[in-house]
Write a protein that binds this DNA or RNA. Structure first.
Lengths: 197, 197
DNA sequence: GCTAACCCGAACAATGGTGTTCGAGTTGGG
DNA sequence: CCCAACTCGAACACCATTGTTCGGGTTAGC
């Protein structure tokens, strides 16, 4: 398994620390410097370049990891079970924070890697949500008045907004999930009947 | 009137061009260089510095102008007339594009001017929307389940998402307004009764 | 305990952005 | 028509960032 890239334990630990620090710093400021990231990771700048030959490579790895994270969380939700609106509520509740972190990285990746290399890799994650929305539309749970692509964007954008509000202390994390779910289901036009209370 | 800052006509024209170019370039990339902006404005770099002594000053002016724009458009809508949901629909229809441009500048201003100097100036524009939401809540047109601050953020964030989708060609500008209004009213929990079709 | 893998500070060249100065040319407005 | 206002390219010093090299020190793992 790990025989191909046999690394020493401390190296592995540092790589983790670097990626975590990169996520945090780049999330706040997409143009954060390598020096800044290295310092935040508690690591020398040379060490950083030892593991990631360039800024581009670092962002690329970070993007991959964040994509895999999102995919894992999304995959853990049984999207096809039950009514579509209930499935969406489960999905939102379990993954809005991860999905937002993923979006944070996306902003950086767009700058560093360019739009082309980002779109298709990102589309894979997005597709899960769109499939669920399509099912809900067919079941009549979601409104067919608005374009499906727009609805997916709206859901995504609301999850991001909620995460940001929580991050900046303007919204209580506990009540955020409920507010988010009810707002999203409303936005999709399911009406109060399906949502219940 | 214009006696205080008596400028020549070509200077005035260049200043306009610079601000327009700055809006466009900085909107796409918040760290766009002065050289880039000058070139986009069809103006020499020296001329740019002649009118705006520093990058900070340029962003500051741009921020002011964009805030004034937004305020003007918002002010032109009669917020207190009719039902709250209808008033909101009017507001959204007439100002989502301007309001999004305003948000674009806000991102840049946050980086360059710092959060403190931005918040209060920005709050003035935001307040109009919040007041309308409060009225709608009292009238029962909007749900009281979610926090009011969150609802305002949600509306704002949806307007931004729609503008971005249109900018990137994924959503038709003509149908965007309708989709946006129905999504926003739904998100606020008005239910399908108030919205009609 | 030995060796290879790893860490790291210092110093390097290269690049690109900022803000300024100079000097010559162009243009608006009275 | 004439002058002040304005434009602009070139070149400047300054600074931050990127990515590299060197050389000595530490540590994991067998």
């Amino acid at each position: 398994m790990t025989s191909a890239t046999r690394r020493r334990a401390d190296a592995e630990r540092n790589i983790e620390a670097i990626l975590d620090a990169a996520l945090a710093r780049l999330g706040r400021d997409p143009s954060a410097s390598m020096t800044e990231i290295a310092k935040a990771a508690g690591v020398g700048r040379v060490t950083l370049y030892g593991h990631f030959p360039s800024r581009e490579e670092l962002v690329d790895t970070l993007f991959d990891r964040s994509l895999a994270d999102a995919d894992a969380v999304l995959g853990a939700v049984d999207i096809d079970a039950g009514r579509a609106d209930e499935a969406l509520a489960r999905l939102v509740r379990s993954s809005w924070r991860v999905l937002d972190r993923q979006r944070t990285v996306l902003v950086v990746a767009l700058r560093v890697l360019g739009p082309e290399r980002v779109r298709d890799r990102h589309a894979a994650v997005f597709a899960r949500l769109e499939r669920l929305l399509r099912r809900g539309r067919e079941e009549g749970a979601f409104s067919a008045a608005a374009p499906p692509g727009w609805q997916a964007t709206a859901v995504y954008s609301l999850m991001h907004a909620a995460a940001q509000e929580v991050d900046e202390g303007r919204l209580d994390a506990a009540q955020a999930a409920e507010a988010l779910v009810s707002t999203i289901l409303g936005a999709l036009g399911g009406g109060p009947a399906g949502t219940g209370r």
